[in-house]
Nucleic acid binder design. Structure first.
Lengths: 231, 231
DNA sequence: TCAAAAGTGTTCAGCCTACACCCATGA
DNA sequence: TCATGGGTGTAGGCTGAACACTTTTGA
């Protein structure tokens, strides 16, 4: 092949991003999905997605799609992997990059989501999704579990101020198993990455639970000295 | 946007695969790289890569590219991640899926590789590569370390029959730190996933080291009962 | 006063780490 | 016989898991 035609002769593909958007509310992990607006499979449940534009980085495409649907920006987002089977999309050959995102539902624009036909569904109530989107979801969940075990990303799902019972509840949801109250508290506090506040959260008990805030500066400093977060 | 034009109006992209090909020989981790044959940057060092064809899955593209360059098939290969910056390739806008592969160098067709201008280089002697290929390499190494810690993929880099000193040497190369001889042996043998052979490898000592073979059936059976491999 | 969730310490077992000497054999 | 790498066991410290009662306070 001559040099000039190396790029010119190569086939071109539709490239999409699909977002697996996790949230945490009322003690449950949730997923934001929409009803598809185009054929084929119009009206079916789907992850939030869109095509990568010319001269737009794929990361930017994912951020843009998420912002357009939920109004949220500056959130935790990470590439999962790319789904490239030739027949995965029944409408055309589309290569799709899956990204997963962690959202603080409380800070999220519910109205905008509604306008786009988006809904927060409990993870246990997710219906059949189009194409390979259920596979994407399952792999995203697995990745979330792997990642959350050694990185402090759980905080991305909680409000800025949270209680220890709330935090424990989150990890119980992620890993689908009970965690010992005392051991959890001991482990987390021993890391010395939480700032204890004077406020209490009385929404779930009469006694009230102390609120904490994740101290990223402290975490970053510790990390530079070999500290490794682990749940 | 009307339904019919949903796919038709979307932009199309060049999509490539690039392979980070690891091998292990003479006690050292090695990487297979080639000298680029096309402009821009003709002659510069590059990962092995190629374009994804029409109606070809991206996984298949990676397998094909690797086979065409090295003659090897049926090897361990896994998607790393996709590099999608708009300007990452200076020749054109190309979205690239990186795959990393583990090869038994001894079973590999050196002649075919030579014909393609491919070379096995010691990991510590890798020159500057084109585009973002050094980033791909570094991320692949990190992934290899993460993956090898909890999955028995190290065996993919060794001959079918190997000694424990050889295996330990491999992990010392991967993690770049010495491993205690006795503790390593104890841990590996305790897993009960190796078959001890009657043969010895006398190439590195007069006493000779017993050869072992990875028993995948045993490993799979154990895994189903909750066993987790860990180095 | 009582119900309901928050908060608190200790013990035990298992695992990881550190560490030094004998063995087998070809040269 | 000797140099070289292969092979072996134990003791101490640390970490993770199990586990029950007291505190607070609004209703």
């Amino acid at each position: 092949m001559s040099h000039g035609s190396f790029y010119a002769n190569a086939p071109r593909h539709l490239v999409a991003v699909d977002c697996i958007i996790f949230g945490f509310e009322d003690g449950k992990l949730k997923l934001l999905i929409i009803q598809r607006k185009v054929d084929p499979l119009e009206g079916a449940w789907s992850l939030v997605g869109g095509f990568v534009q010319e001269d737009e980085s794929t990361d930017h495409a994912a951020i843009r799609v998420l912002r357009q649907t939920t109004g949220i920006r500056d959130i935790y987002m990470e590439q999962l992997r790319t789904y490239g089977d030739a027949n995965r999309d029944t409408g055309a050959r589309v290569i799709s990059l899956a990204y997963y995102a962690l959202i603080r539902i409380s800070e999220h624009d519910r109205m905008l989501a509604q306008e786009h036909g988006a809904h927060w569904l409990n993870l246990h109530q997710i219906p059949g999704l189009i194409f390979d989107h259920n596979t994407m979801l399952n792999e995203a969940l697995e990745r979330l579990r792997d990642k959350a075990k050694f990185h402090p990303i759980g905080f991305e799902l909680l409000p800025e101020k949270f209680s220890l019972p709330q935090l424990r509840n989150l990890y119980e949801e992620i890993y689908q198993r009970p965690l010992d109250k005392r051991n959890f508290r001991k482990k987390i506090l021993a890391m010395d990455i939480l700032e204890k506040l004077d406020e209490k959260d009385k929404s779930t008990s009469k006694k009230g639970a102390h609120l904490y805030r994740f101290d990223r500066k402290k975490y970053d400093a510790l990390t530079q000295h070999g500290f490794v977060f682990e749940i």
